[in-house]
C-alpha cells in the first residue's frame, strides 16, 4: 500500500493511462499536445495560464510540471508568482461573489 496519495514519480507514469484505454488516452494526449502549441497565444503565455490553473485545481503534479516548463521557457519567478495570484484572485473572487447570493437570501428571509 502506498503511504501517500501523491507520489512525485507517478508524474513520469502519466502516459501509462493509455494502457487501460488506448483510444481515449491517445485522444487526450493528442489534444493536450495540440493545445500547448504556439497559436494565437504563445507557448509561453499558455505555460503561465497552465501554472495558474494548476494552483487553482491544486494539482501537485501540474505545479511541478509547469514550474519546470516555465523555467525552461525563461519565465521569471516574478511572472510565475503573478500568475499564481491571478488564479488565486479568481478563485477567491468566485467564493466571494457568492456573498451576493448570501445577501440576497438574507434579505429575502428577513423582515
Amino acid at each position: 500500500m502506498a503511504k501517500t496519495y501523491y507520489n512525485p514519480d507517478d508524474l513520469r507514469k502519466f502516459g501509462k493511462i493509455t494502457e487501460w484505454s488506448e483510444e481515449l488516452g491517445a485522444k487526450f494526449f493528442d489534444y493536450y499536445e495540440k493545445v500547448f502549441e504556439e497559436g494565437a497565444l504563445s507557448a509561453r503565455e499558455k505555460s503561465l495560464i497552465a501554472l495558474a490553473v494548476s494552483h487553482v485545481v491544486k494539482c501537485p503534479y501540474c505545479i511541478d510540471a509547469y514550474t519546470k516548463d516555465g523555467l525552461q521557457k525563461g519565465i521569471t519567478k516574478e511572472e510565475m508568482m503573478e500568475a499564481v495570484h491571478t488564479g488565486a484572485a479568481i478563485e477567491s473572487g468566485a467564493t466571494l461573489v457568492h456573498g451576493v447570493q448570501m445577501m440576497n437570501k438574507y434579505d429575502k428571509l428577513s423582515m
Binding site: 504563445s42 507557448a43 519546470k68 525552461q72 525563461g74
Partner: peptide
C-alpha cells in the same frame, strides 16, 4: 531543466 526552443529564447 532542459532548454526550450532556441528561436523563442
Amino acid at each position: 531543466f532542459l532548454p526550450t526552443n532556441q528561436e523563442a529564447l
